[in-house]
């Protein structure tokens, strides 16, 4: 297929074909990161800006490494160094950056729709690096990649997502992609963290973790979104941990070849025990590795066309 999009804003917009195309493209990039010389000239002369209004370690570094391995120049702007603290609007910041002619801007923002706003006014390719509780498309794609790699398929799986579904962009993006490919998705968490009407997306809601994980092929753990007021929805993290923390016992109830995923950052001892996070079923670090390949693919598809 031919890639036609200027921006990558959300998973809900993407067709199965487009997602598969990204995964297949990522496949060819994964190997680069394992070579001794981890660099190809594909995006030489291109400029990628990462504009992060929220703290991030993994996503920002992953994008930067992905861009550098493709020989693009990268500039990182985080909210502490940007003009946002001086009262400049997002729109003005974006327009100023655009004047310096970047090819792509990766934006992370605490408010849903911020990337869409930029996409509407800028010629640069906009990549959504996470917008509030809305979407985190590159995370869903690297999760899909990891599932395909570990399970050999991305359809007909039973996938349990556990935690603060309401405030999780990772959950939203994953639900959209996983349902699109025909998987069974179970959302598990306290009712205060399950958004109303979620059944309309074709997912099942289960409040009891033990019931939810039974025969699961994939268990995806989320953290409590403290920055989005997540702790208001539960009496205490201790109680949350008792009810929704994933332990070895849960893993034993799932399918034999279950994989445990987590988008990070992990709160060990709250939503996941050390034993599980570091155990044989955990693919958490594979997710991080695959993130680089998937982001290389996305950058390549969006801005790697004819120079």
């Amino acid at each position: 297929m031919n890639w036609k999009r200027k921006d990558l804003l959300d998973i809900r917009d993407l067709s199965k074909e487009e997602m598969l195309f990204i995964l297949d493209t990522a496949e060819s990039f994964k190997d680069i990161s394992r070579r001794e010389i981890k660099k190809v000239p594909t995006l030489r002369g291109k400029t990628v800006i990462t504009l992060f209004y929220e703290p991030s370690t993994r996503t920002r570094t992953s994008f930067e490494i992905a861009a550098k391995r493709l020989s693009a120049d990268t500039i990182n702007i985080s909210s502490s160094t940007s003009s946002s603290t001086k009262g400049e609007s997002l729109k003005d910041t974006a327009r100023n950056l655009e004047s310096m002619r970047p090819d792509a801007i990766v934006i992370r923002h605490s408010m849903p729709g911020a990337p869409h706003m930029l996409a509407g006014i800028l010629d640069s390719s906009i990549i959504n690096g996470g917008d509030g509780s809305h979407e985190h498309p590159t995370q869903a794609l690297l999760d899909l990649y990891t599932m395909r790699e570990k399970k050999g398929r991305i359809n007909g799986l039973r996938i349990v997502i556990v935690g603060d579904i309401a405030h999780s962009r990772v959950a939203r993006s994953n639900i959209f992609s996983l349902k699109n490919f025909g998987n069974e998705v179970i959302c598990c968490g306290p009712p205060t963290m399950i958004p109303p009407y979620i059944e309309t997306l074709g997912v099942r809601v289960e409040y009891d973790l033990k019931t939810a994980v039974r025969k699961a092929d994939v268990i995806m753990m989320l953290r409590i979104q403290k920055e989005r007021g997540g702790t208001k929805y539960i009496p205490s993290t201790k109680e949350y941990s008792t009810l929704y923390g994933l332990t070895k016992r849960h893993v034993d109830m799932a399918a034999n070849d279950v994989i445990i995923m987590h988008p990070g950052p992990m709160n060990r001892g709250i939503e996941i025990t050390d034993e599980v996070a570091d155990g044989p079923s955990s693919v958490i670090l594979d997710q991080v590795e695959n993130g680089v390949a998937v982001r290389m693919a996305i950058l390549y598809l969006l801005i790697g066309g004819e120079a």
Binding site: R12, P112, G113, H134, P195, Y197, T200
Partner: peptide, 10 residues
């Protein structure tokens, strides 16, 4: 609060 807020995370 409805299906749109579910989809767009607002």
């Amino acid at each position: 609060e409805g299906t749109a807020s579910l989809l767009n995370g607002l």
